[in-house]
Simulated assay, not measured.
Amino acid sequence: MTRLHVISAATRPTSSGRPLAEWVTGLAREHGAFEVTPVDLAEIALPFLDEPEYASSGIYAHQHTLEWSALVDSADAFVFVLPMYNGSFTAPFKNAIDFLYREWQGKPVGLVSYSAGPSGGAPAAEMLLPVLTRLGMLPAERSVAIPGISALIGPEGFEAPEGLAGRLAGVLDDVAALAKEPASA
Rank of each mutant, 00 (worst) to 15 (best):
L132I: 09
V36R: 12
V109Y: 00
D50K: 03
P47C: 09
G110C: 04
A55Q: 07
H62V: 09
H31M: 04
F34M: 07
F78N: 11
E30R: 05
A125I: 04
R134A: 13
A28S: 14
P83I: 06
V131T: 12
S74L: 14
Y54L: 07
K94R: 14
A91S: 15
F34Y: 08
A140G: 10
V112I: 10
A33R: 11
R134W: 05
F78M: 08
V24C: 06
F78H: 06
E30K: 15
V79Y: 06
I44Y: 03
E51N: 15
L111F: 00
G32E: 12
P92F: 00
S143P: 10
R29M: 09
Q105K: 10
F34P: 05
G32Q: 01
S119I: 07
G148R: 13
A42C: 12
S143E: 12
L128W: 02
L111R: 10
H31T: 03
W68C: 00
S74A: 15
A151H: 11
N86Y: 02
R142P: 09
L132W: 09
A33V: 02
G26P: 00
L132D: 00
P47L: 04
F80K: 07
A42W: 09
A45H: 00
G26C: 09
G58N: 05
H62K: 15
G26K: 10
A45E: 07
E43Q: 12
Y114D: 01
S115A: 15
P38R: 01
E103R: 03
V81Q: 12
M84P: 06
M127D: 11
D40M: 05
M137E: 04
L27C: 12
A91Y: 14
W104G: 02
G32H: 05
Y54D: 07
M84E: 15
L135S: 13
M137Q: 14
L135Q: 02
S56I: 07
P108W: 07
A151M: 02
M84K: 01
L132K: 07
A116V: 09
G136V: 08
D76K: 14
P139R: 08
P118E: 13
V24K: 03
S88P: 08
D73E: 11
V36C: 12
Q63M: 01
Y101P: 01
G117E: 10
G117C: 09
P147L: 03
L82S: 09
A42V: 06
H31Q: 04
S113Y: 07
P52I: 08
L129I: 15
H31G: 06
G110T: 00
D40W: 03
T133L: 13
F34Q: 11
G120P: 12
E35L: 15
F80R: 13
M137K: 08
A42K: 03
P83F: 12
V81I: 13
S69Y: 01
L41G: 06
L46E: 08
P52S: 02
A145C: 06
G106T: 05
M84Q: 15
T37K: 05
G26S: 10
Y60R: 07
L152P: 04
P108S: 05
S119M: 06
T90Q: 09
A61F: 13
G106P: 08
